[in-house]
């Protein structure tokens, strides 16, 4: 399928909201699943979490951060443009049950991506506690939308510019004190945040799920690049996950594997930027002047 871009906007610095027309995916999507997007005909296959969808409108929403060449290409596309490929929904849907009180934490793109889970956990009868983790106050987004679904929303910033200061582990004792008991936790965001959060919940014996974001290629279990070690077993994040028990993931391995292509990714980024913007960024400057 090709996907027409309906909305592509920067919601806070370096976080973009992309709404694509993808009726077949919108019809099928379940919380916790993802799609793979190829921006253009020479592009990579890159995974993004489904952060919202509407089967009536036939649209899906993803939040993305500019990280490298593929996401940069996306930032430069406009409504009406067509992404070469969007395929999904992929991955196993998240386990949604009535656990009691659920702590739902998001960082980076997770501030957007936890929304469908919040809705689903709520519907299943849970008390849902949202948690936004951000570096600083001005990059918090999606707040109003999430507040509609959660019973409580905590904001944790690394610099303390808003809400609690620090990361999830520092915030947990406070949240536990206010909420009483937390029966289940689920985190989506950058790898570091998910790892640290899992360590935090472990101390309090809270069962914890993380949405693993390993490197992926096909997303159908065919290449094995997304392999992660969980409880001593090799799992493929695209088909066995992306959700795994955060206390059983071998995080050292996850971190090591993320860096498989860093040198090439940088090169691709520079190459594309130079080619499109000119060696000194002349082109971009001119564009800005015109605009």
């Amino acid at each position: 399928m090709k996907g027409e871009i309906i909305i592509n906007e920067e919601v806070v610095p370096n976080v973009h909201r992309l709404v694509l027309s993808a009726p077949v995916i919108a019809k099928r999507a379940k919380p916790g699943q993802f799609v793979i997007v190829i921006p253009d005909e020479v592009g990579e296959r890159i995974p993004f979490t489904l952060s919202d969808w509407s089967s009536e409108n036939g649209t899906i929403t993803i939040f993305y951060q500019e990280a490298g060449v593929s996401t940069m290409k996306l930032t430069r596309m406009e409504p009406g443009d067509i992404v070469h490929t969007v395929v999904g929904p992929l991955g196993r849907p998240s386990k949604i049950e009535n656990f009691g009180t659920v702590l739902l934490g998001g960082g980076c793109y997770g501030l957007g991506a936890i929304y469908p889970l919040a809705k689903a956990f709520k519907k299943a009868g849970n008390r849902v506690i949202g948690l936004f983790e951000a570096r600083t106050a001005y990059i918090v987004y999606n707040e109003e939308k999430l507040r509609e679904e959660v019973d409580e929303l905590y904001i944790v910033t690394a610099d303390g510019s808003r809400g609690l200061k620090g990361h999830v582990p520092e915030a947990l004792p406070y949240i536990l004190e206010k909420e009483g008991k937390i029966d289940y936790a689920h985190f989506i965001g950058c790898t570091y945040m998910m790892m640290v959060s899992s360590r935090g919940t472990k101390e309090h014996n809270i069962p914890t799920i993380v949405a693993m974001n390993s490197l992926m290629l096909d997303g159908t279990g065919m290449c094995g690049i997304c392999r992660v070690e969980v409880d001593g077993n090799t799992k493929f994040a695209c088909v066995d996950g992306p959700d795994f028990d955060g206390h059983k993931v071998n995080w050292d391995m996850v971190f090591a594997r993320k860096h498989a292509y860093v040198a090439e990714e940088n090169m691709a980024y520079q190459f594309y930027k130079t080619r499109t913007d000119g060696a000194s960024g002349e082109c971009a400057k001119k564009q800005r002047e015109v605009a």
């Binding site: 020479v42 292509y261 090439e264 594309y272």
Partner: peptide, 10 residues
């Protein structure tokens, strides 16, 4: 054909 194509093959 990297970097003409985006997917790296180091």
């Amino acid at each position: 054909l990297f970097p003409d194509y985006d997917s790296p093959l180091p």
